[in-house]
Write a protein that binds this DNA or RNA. Structure first.
Lengths: 129, 129
DNA sequence: GAAAGTACCCACTTTGAAGTAAGGTACTGG
DNA sequence: CCAGTACCTTACTTCAAAGTGGGTACTTTC
């Protein structure tokens, strides 16, 4: 029996790859992958401190999504107080490398973008109120 | 007078780079940048056809955001019917190259992610109903 | 004995991103 | 003369993402 596995295409509206793309480009997903690439392994509260502004809820939720997708490995040691380590899987490292580059590019090119916005705004200023 | 230009850091909650990151990782922003990298130059309706499921509103809105950020160049020829070409600026090409790689990686690795999700779901199935 | 660290979960509310639908313009082809 | 093309804009609505504030269970430190 023939199981049809069409190649994924993000440009198709109902392609499952869209969901994965949403996960790895999500607001907190990008940042978590990037810091995990720098860190090898991190605890919950260290991640919370590393990613400015993330809430505990969103941290837990995003980590679960990435874990389910096989990008993040969760290792809990049943001690008191609880000790949980998060790290990237080999698969996760592939994605993290990409988004890491993207975040660095964003940081590097921000000044140019700010200039571009200023140019755009003066060019498109209201001509006559 | 000293104008302080701190280096941008996406891990800081109130860093302006967060906004730019949101733009280039937005649902439709990623896809538009990626198709524009493949195409050199594209018209509005061609983009609409290329990116499955995008509405005219979101297409116009996302293009405006990317244009304002200096990533996309809009060239309108005042003819009837209107003819508008969209292309990447050199700056835009840098970002597009990154997200292009990311979309290809997503497509390539989707099968592994699907497997990972199945493993996760059976492992974490409800233990006793 | 009170507070803080540790890693969460749950319920509730808010926000904003996105979808839907319609209108508008100035023409061309049937 | 009506439909269609091309490129939008505006108004209204919806829905999921995210924020808020609480609780847990146990230990160590002040």
């Amino acid at each position: 029996m023939q199981v049809s596995v069409l190649p994924a295409d993000v440009n198709l509206a109902n392609c499952p790859s869209r969901v994965l793309l949403d996960h790895v480009t999500s607001r907190w997903g990008v940042l978590l992958l990037a810091v995990l690439l720098d860190a090898e392994r991190m605890r919950f509260s260290a991640l919370r401190r590393a990613v400015g502004g993330i809430s505990e809820k969103m941290l837990a939720q995003t980590l679960q999504t990435l874990e389910r997708d096989g990008l993040v490995l969760r290792e809990a040691r049943p001690v008191i107080p609880p000790h949980v380590d998060y790290s990237l899987t080999p698969l996760g490292r592939e994605f993290a490398a990409q988004v890491w580059e993207l975040t660095r590019l964003v940081e590097r090119r921000l000044p140019r973008v700010v200039e571009a916005r200023e140019r755009y705004d003066t060019r498109n200023a209201e001509p006559s109120p």
